[in-house]
């Protein structure tokens, strides 16, 4: 089987985070994509999702390493490589059989954003039919909306959508609420949130070779992270 190190481009290795105490014989490779503020490539903060996944493995006494790589590559790697996990994955029926699941790392929401001058009234998902909606390649939001017959225009990186919206190249931007807030602030742009139309359980999807006992341990630890307020604290830190 191909080593994960040969799959990941050297440039990505620069941003790898080595964080864990060695408490277990196996080392788990955790893959995620760059998705501010859930995961940052470089910088002071690692991102909410990376903080949660890291805390989970540390508290479970499992050795791990986080790698940031394009989502599709990460997905295929975890499907085919032992001792690997992917996050934050949307758990759904089609994917259920392909991974072991630890869920939810956090709960996210997706909304339609527009400009305050656009005059658009979006009361239901159906009201966005016929409008050009910006999203990005491979995103669950794009997949969901296309499943309803919406006109979705995808780009390589979600951050491009805020510019497209500002220049009226799309009518709406379908985005995670936390990501949209981050991008709006970064680009000094005023957005109008039209409708928060979907909630998602974001999960850790692990390769099927990982023993059930480890998966159960992670799930139990995740539960305790909700119970003691750890998840709240991490998420609150990224809403500031």
């Amino acid at each position: 089987m191909k080593s994960v190190f040969s799959i990941i481009a050297p440039m990505i290795c620069a941003s790898v985070l080595l964080l864990s105490p060695v408490a277990h014989a196996e080392k788990y490779m955790l893959y995620t994509e760059e998705l501010p503020p859930y995961s940052f490539k470089g910088g002071d903060k690692r991102g909410a999702a990376i903080d949660i996944a890291s805390a989970l493995f540390e508290r479970s006494g499992l050795d791990y390493e986080v790698k940031i790589t394009p989502w599709k590559r990460a997905y295929v790697t975890v499907e085919n490589t032992p001792n690997t996990c992917l996050f934050p994955a949307q758990r759904n029926q089609e994917r259920e059989a392909s991974f072991h699941w630890v869920s939810p790392l956090y709960i996210s929401q997706t909304a339609f954003y527009g400009l305050e001058t656009d005059g658009l009234v979006i009361r239901t998902l159906n009201d966005a039919k016929g409008l050009k909606i910006g999203s990005y390649n491979g995103s669950a939001a794009a997949e969901y909306l296309q499943g309803w017959g919406h006109d979705v225009k995808t780009v390589a990186h979600d951050k491009q959508n805020i510019m497209k919206l500002s220049r009226n190249r799309v009518d709406l931007w379908a985005s995670d609420t936390l990501s949209a807030a981050y991008q709006a602030k970064k680009h000094n742009t005023v957005l109008q949130r039209k409708l928060v139309y979907f909630s998602t359980l974001r999960a850790l999807a692990c390769s099927l070779d990982i023993p059930k006992a480890i998966v159960d341990k992670l799930q139990a630890e995740l539960g305790s992270m909700y119970g003691d307020g750890t998840i709240d604290k991490i998420m609150a830190d990224y809403r500031k």
Partner: peptide
């Protein structure tokens, strides 16, 4: 009406979507 403006939601701090509008500094 502008439904987005009535779009308050979440009871627990961890799930709160802070502010309905995202207004830049």
């Amino acid at each position: 009406i502008f439904p987005g403006l009535f779009d308050t939601y979440r009871l627990k701090p961890s799930l709160d979507q802070t502010g309905r509008r995202i207004v830049a500094q």
